[in-house]
Design a protein around this nucleic acid. Structure first.
Length: 663
DNA sequence: TCGAGGGTTTTTTTT
DNA sequence: AAACCCTCGA
């Protein structure tokens, strides 16, 4: 028996490093490629990981979390911010699988959910009440609309921007820190004359939110940023516990989020950001891919690690993807490669009509299923969610189950929002937005009456705890006395969120049937909503999650059998971020639709569309089929679109095979 | 003041 | 095709 072990070490490794490695339960060096390993074994310092599509970005983050924990760091000292809650949970699960349950204890979530938790915990330090209400996009539009219509800005002669446009302008303003003036002049020159009024509405919107304890998505980030920058004792105590900060999908962060990252690391510069500048697709929401481009100059001593080996796609697909992204004007140099060889070249299919395109996709899916590819490994991607309407019909005809992602969210459907509004009032009696929504549901109550009631609520003249009778607007109150009774009873009794929701739905039922012709279909959503509430013990977490981390999409337009586990995925490209399938279709790759005509005028937006195409094609592992209909009438421009997307039109010959599809 | 009816614009992508 | 906005009668 040997008395010693002899370990071979390479030239760069030191003896102590080789010894250290032996004490880990995971063999990191073997399970990762050299670039991944380098990132994973880093401890102190600032790192930028440029991770091309499919290069094991998630894997790298997961292993780093495991390794830090193996090194003995407290899970609670590690913060991992991701783009969606889904990817956060997925990462924590994976980390728990490779190591142990400690990995699920790290701090994680999206910027918005982290802001929510932090602000509720330290609300005093930022001057908020901890039961603030979060406005989702349509809520904030409703508030803007209220201000807009009250301010008397709408005159007959000139058109004033509508609530949606105003919301976009305001949000872009705070997320990018570009002035409202510049945004209006750049993107909405036809409203240039209304600038004064737009600014007034903006100011009124801000003070309305402050007065009523309301935070929209952007405010969550703003308050978090201020909280961190002011470095109050509360903020210091938070930061002193944080040892490591990791940011996923860094290419899709905006100016505010970048500032938050700076704030989080002001006491401790152990920061790792991961992203792919070529996959930045959220500029419309204020994301600035310059964050990742300029990262090395904005933080000190940045070490850059580039992951280039792709583990997902075959070489022909990568060649195709590389060609698309090669034309980008600004990017970190990278060249994806793989060891997965294949002679299967991407297909580009020109279909005579839209319906023919759908039939082609359906036939091809059936064919793939025959070959033994599970439906779960097949996905159809598109630029905008309505591009799949025709296909959805054909899929149903062929009895192919599918599930659609992107587009209308479950919680954004009017009926679910209605029920949620009741719950929000119970949680925060001063939630005037929800009051407004609920009051308007009642027969005989319109804008004016609702406003009167709300005024009295906000001035503390009435309260759901009191009997509303005998106050100023007596007549109106007779119409809502039942509502006040309901809210009052829900307030005082100690029930679970589910029980409360049940009572609300009972009360809402007649209103609901009156309001929607298709209430039978929508009824299903309310049942699902009730199921979801069962997971929650507190109203606060239920309501926050519904705004920040909305569950799955509406079940109204679900394909055949929802219970089946086998289904084809239909998804917008944005919602397909980070995912992969054996076979991927990209439909409606039609110039004018993708890139959209709207994007064609500005170089920045056009570049983003190109990156979007890059994201789409890099989802495919083995088969990539891009198609476009040759005959689509575009109402907006009054022209017929017939050319393939400019991003693929010059890619044929050796990189792709072209086909023409006729009846 | 409510709410129905009709004419018109507007449309991506999402936390 | 749906959302939005305005007008008008009750």
């Amino acid at each position: 028996m040997k008395k010693y072990t002899l370990t071979r070490i390479n030239q760069t490794g030191s003896i102590s490093a080789a010894l250290d490695e032996a004490r880990f339960s995971i063999n990191y060096a073997e399970l990762l490629n050299p670039a991944q390993y380098e990132a994973v074994k880093s401890v102190d310092g600032t790192y930028l990981i440029i991770a091309g599509a499919g290069t094991g970005k998630t894997r790298t983050l997961v292993y780093r979390v495991a390794r830090l924990i193996e090194l003995g760091y407290d899970p609670q000292s590690i913060l991992l911010l991701t783009f969606t809650r889904k990817s956060a949970t997925e990462m924590l699960n994976r980390a728990s699988l490779i190591l142990d349950n400690r990995c699920s204890k790290i701090l994680g979530g999206t910027f918005h959910s982290f802001a929510n938790v932090t602000l509720r915990k330290y609300s005093k330090a930022v001057g908020l009440e901890n039961n603030f209400t979060i406005l989702d996009q349509s809520d904030s539009e409703d508030v803007i609309n209220l201000i807009r219509s009250q301010s008397g800005l709408i005159s007959k002669e000139k058109r004033f921007p509508n609530k949606r446009t105003l919301g976009k302008i305001f949000s872009l303003n705070v997320n990018t820190e570009i002035s409202i003036k510049a945004i209006v002049e750049d993107d909405y020159p036809h409203f240039r004359d209304d600038l004064e009024e737009i600014l007034k509405v903006s100011a009124a919107y801000k003070s309305y939110k402050r007065k009523n304890n309301l935070l929209d998505y952007d405010d969550l980030l703003i308050y978090l940023k201020i909280f961190l920058q002011e470095l109050s004792p509360a903020a210091k105590s938070l930061l002193s516990k944080l040892n490591f900060v990791m940011i996923d999908e860094f290419q899709d962060t905006n100016k505010l989020q970048n500032d938050i990252v700076k704030g989080l690391t002001q006491l401790n510069n152990n920061l790792m950001v991961v992203g792919d500048d070529s996959q930045s697709i959220y500029a419309f929401r204020g994301a600035n891919f310059k964050n990742i481009i300029d990262f090395p100059s904005q933080f000190s001593n940045v070490k850059i690690i580039t992951l280039e080996e792709n583990f997902r796609s075959t070489q022909p697909i990568l060649n195709f993807a590389n060609r698309i992204v090669d034309a980008s004007l600004e990017k970190f140099p990278k060249n994806l490669f793989t060891h997965k060889k294949s002679s299967n070249v991407p297909m580009i299919v020109a279909a005579l009509t839209e319906n023919l395109q759908s039939k082609f996709v359906v036939d091809k899916i059936l064919e793939l299923r025959e070959e033994g590819i599970p439906l779960k490994e097949i996905c159809v991607l598109f630029r905008s969610s309505f591009f799949s309407f025709d296909l959805e019909i054909e899929l149903s005809k062929a009895n192919l189950p599918f599930q659609k992602f992107g587009g209308m969210k479950f919680v954004e459907t009017a009926h679910v929002k209605d029920v949620l509004a009741f719950l929000r009032i119970i949680f925060n009696n001063k939630d005037l937005v929800s009051w407004f929504r609920v009051l308007l549901l009642h027969e005989g109550i319109g804008q004016k009456s609702a406003q009167k009631i709300i005024d009295e609520i906000s001035e503390n003249q009435i309260d759901i705890k009191q009997n509303p009778e005998g106050l100023k607007t007596k007549k109106i109150f007779s119409k809502v006395s039942a509502l006040f009774e309901l809210l009052h009873s829900l307030q005082s009794i100690n029930e679970t969120p589910t029980e409360k929701a049940q009572k609300i739905i009972e009360y809402y039922s007649p209103i609901f049937q009156e309001k929607f012709d298709d209430y039978n279909k929508r009824k299903k959503d309310l049942d699902i909503f009730l199921n979801i509430t069962e997971k929650y013990r507190s109203l606060e977490s239920l309501i926050s999650d519904m705004s920040i981390d909305p569950p799955i999409d509406s079940f109204v337009d679900l394909g055949d059998e929802s219970s089946e586990d086998e289904f084809v995925t239909l998804s917008t490209i944005h919602s397909a971020k980070g995912l992969e399938w054996h076979s991927v279709f990209v439909i409606h790759a039609l110039d004018g639709y993708f890139p959209s005509n709207r994007s064609a005028y500005k170089i920045e937006t056009l570049e983003e569309e190109r990156r979007l195409m890059y994201v789409a094609v890099t989802r495919a592992k083995n088969n990539l089929m891009i198609s476009y209909p040759m005959n689509i009438y575009d109402r907006e421009t009054g022209t017929t679109l017939s050319k393939p997307s400019r991003f693929i039109s010059d890619v044929t010959g050796d990189l792709a095979e072209g086909y023409l599809l006729e009846e």
